[in-house]
Protein backbone atom coordinates (compact mmCIF):
# COMPACT_ATOMS: atom_id res chain seq x y z
CA UNK A 1 0.00 0.00 0.00
CA UNK A 2 1.32 3.42 -0.86
CA UNK A 3 1.30 6.32 1.60
CA UNK A 4 -1.45 7.99 -0.43
CA UNK A 5 -3.86 5.07 -0.01
CA UNK A 6 -3.31 4.53 3.72
CA UNK A 7 -4.00 8.17 4.54
CA UNK A 8 -7.24 8.31 2.50
CA UNK A 9 -10.41 9.38 4.31
CA UNK A 10 -12.33 6.42 5.72
CA UNK A 11 -15.96 6.36 4.63
CA UNK A 12 -17.17 4.73 7.87
CA UNK A 13 -17.62 5.73 11.49
CA UNK A 14 -15.29 4.54 14.26
CA UNK A 15 -18.05 2.29 15.62
CA UNK A 16 -18.62 0.89 12.12
CA UNK A 17 -14.93 0.08 11.90
CA UNK A 18 -14.97 -1.76 15.23
CA UNK A 19 -18.02 -3.80 14.26
CA UNK A 20 -16.66 -4.32 10.77
CA UNK A 21 -20.06 -5.17 9.32
CA UNK A 22 -22.35 -3.28 6.97
CA UNK A 23 -26.13 -3.13 6.75
CA UNK A 24 -26.28 -6.76 5.57
CA UNK A 25 -24.43 -7.84 8.78
CA UNK A 26 -22.03 -9.92 6.71
CA UNK A 27 -19.29 -7.36 6.17
CA UNK A 28 -16.92 -8.39 3.40
CA UNK A 29 -17.55 -12.12 3.95
CA UNK A 30 -18.98 -12.78 0.47
CA UNK A 31 -16.20 -10.85 -1.26
CA UNK A 32 -13.50 -12.43 0.90
CA UNK A 33 -14.77 -16.00 0.41
CA UNK A 34 -14.71 -15.46 -3.36
CA UNK A 35 -11.00 -14.56 -3.02
CA UNK A 36 -10.27 -17.46 -0.66
CA UNK A 37 -11.90 -20.00 -3.00
CA UNK A 38 -10.13 -18.44 -6.02
CA UNK A 39 -6.73 -18.80 -4.32
CA UNK A 40 -7.47 -22.42 -3.38
CA UNK A 41 -8.67 -23.14 -6.92
CA UNK A 42 -5.44 -21.91 -8.54
CA UNK A 43 -3.34 -25.05 -7.78
CA UNK A 44 -6.41 -27.31 -7.96
CA UNK A 45 -7.34 -26.07 -11.44
CA UNK A 46 -3.78 -26.51 -12.64
CA UNK A 47 -3.80 -30.09 -11.33
CA UNK A 48 -7.28 -30.83 -12.71
CA UNK A 49 -6.74 -29.48 -16.24
CA UNK A 50 -3.40 -31.30 -16.63
CA UNK A 51 -4.79 -34.55 -15.15
CA UNK A 52 -7.89 -34.57 -17.35
CA UNK A 53 -5.76 -33.76 -20.40
CA UNK A 54 -3.73 -36.95 -19.80
CA UNK A 55 -7.00 -38.91 -19.33
CA UNK A 56 -8.03 -38.17 -22.95
CA UNK A 57 -9.07 -41.35 -24.77
CA UNK A 58 -8.53 -43.57 -21.70
CA UNK A 59 -10.89 -46.52 -21.06
CA UNK A 60 -13.70 -46.56 -18.49
CA UNK A 61 -11.64 -48.81 -16.19
CA UNK A 62 -8.60 -46.54 -16.39
CA UNK A 63 -10.75 -43.47 -15.67
CA UNK A 64 -12.40 -45.20 -12.68
CA UNK A 65 -8.99 -46.24 -11.36
CA UNK A 66 -7.75 -42.64 -11.62
CA UNK A 67 -10.82 -41.18 -9.83
CA UNK A 68 -10.69 -43.91 -7.15
CA UNK A 69 -7.08 -43.14 -6.16
CA UNK A 70 -7.36 -41.57 -2.67
CA UNK A 71 -5.25 -38.54 -3.59
CA UNK A 72 -7.23 -37.85 -6.79
CA UNK A 73 -10.57 -38.43 -5.03
CA UNK A 74 -9.59 -35.99 -2.26
CA UNK A 75 -8.45 -33.28 -4.67
CA UNK A 76 -11.54 -33.87 -6.85
CA UNK A 77 -13.87 -33.42 -3.85
CA UNK A 78 -12.01 -30.25 -2.83
CA UNK A 79 -12.20 -28.93 -6.41
CA UNK A 80 -15.93 -29.71 -6.64
CA UNK A 81 -16.81 -27.99 -3.35
CA UNK A 82 -14.67 -24.91 -4.03
CA UNK A 83 -15.68 -24.64 -7.71
CA UNK A 84 -19.42 -24.71 -7.04
CA UNK A 85 -19.02 -22.30 -4.10
CA UNK A 86 -17.01 -19.93 -6.30
CA UNK A 87 -19.47 -20.30 -9.20
CA UNK A 88 -22.49 -19.61 -6.96
CA UNK A 89 -20.81 -16.52 -5.48
CA UNK A 90 -19.77 -15.21 -8.90
CA UNK A 91 -23.13 -15.84 -10.58
CA UNK A 92 -24.86 -14.14 -7.63
CA UNK A 93 -22.87 -10.94 -8.25
CA UNK A 94 -23.66 -11.09 -11.99
CA UNK A 95 -27.38 -11.45 -11.21
CA UNK A 96 -27.27 -8.63 -8.64
CA UNK A 97 -25.72 -6.37 -11.27
CA UNK A 98 -27.99 -7.15 -14.21
CA UNK A 99 -31.35 -8.46 -12.99
CA UNK A 100 -33.84 -5.70 -12.19
CA UNK A 101 -36.67 -6.06 -9.72
CA UNK A 102 -36.50 -7.39 -6.16
CA UNK A 103 -38.41 -10.65 -6.79
CA UNK A 104 -36.84 -11.76 -10.11
CA UNK A 105 -33.41 -11.02 -8.64
CA UNK A 106 -34.01 -12.93 -5.42
CA UNK A 107 -35.50 -15.95 -7.17
CA UNK A 108 -32.76 -16.16 -9.81
CA UNK A 109 -30.11 -16.04 -7.06
CA UNK A 110 -31.93 -18.78 -5.12
CA UNK A 111 -32.29 -20.88 -8.28
CA UNK A 112 -28.57 -20.55 -9.05
CA UNK A 113 -27.68 -21.48 -5.46
CA UNK A 114 -29.98 -24.52 -5.58
CA UNK A 115 -28.47 -25.64 -8.89
CA UNK A 116 -24.91 -25.21 -7.57
CA UNK A 117 -25.72 -27.18 -4.41
CA UNK A 118 -27.41 -30.01 -6.31
CA UNK A 119 -24.82 -30.35 -9.09
CA UNK A 120 -22.05 -30.08 -6.51
CA UNK A 121 -23.60 -32.83 -4.40
CA UNK A 122 -24.23 -34.95 -7.51
CA UNK A 123 -20.57 -34.65 -8.55
CA UNK A 124 -19.34 -35.40 -5.01
CA UNK A 125 -21.60 -38.46 -4.67
CA UNK A 126 -20.34 -39.75 -8.04
CA UNK A 127 -16.71 -39.42 -6.89
CA UNK A 128 -17.50 -41.08 -3.53
CA UNK A 129 -19.36 -43.95 -5.21
CA UNK A 130 -16.35 -44.64 -7.42
CA UNK A 131 -13.75 -44.15 -4.68
CA UNK A 132 -15.38 -46.00 -1.78
Amino acid sequence: MSEKQTTAIRMESALGRVRGLGSAKQGTHHWWMQRVTSMALLPLTLWFVLSVATLAGKSHEATLAWIAHPLNATLLLASIGLSFHHAAAGLQVVIEDYVRGEMPRMFSILAVKAACWLFGLLSAIAVLKIAL
Binding site: H60, L64, I67, L76, S83, L122, I125, A126, V127, I130
Partner: peptide, 10 residues
Protein backbone atom coordinates in the same frame (compact mmCIF):
# COMPACT_ATOMS: atom_id res chain seq x y z
CA UNK B 1 -20.28 -31.06 -18.12
CA UNK B 2 -17.91 -32.11 -15.32
CA UNK B 3 -20.91 -33.27 -13.26
CA UNK B 4 -22.24 -35.23 -16.25
CA UNK B 5 -18.82 -36.83 -16.86
CA UNK B 6 -18.41 -37.89 -13.19
CA UNK B 7 -22.00 -39.13 -12.96
CA UNK B 8 -21.62 -41.17 -16.15
CA UNK B 9 -18.34 -42.67 -14.93
CA UNK B 10 -20.08 -43.72 -11.69
Amino acid sequence: VLAWWLLAAA
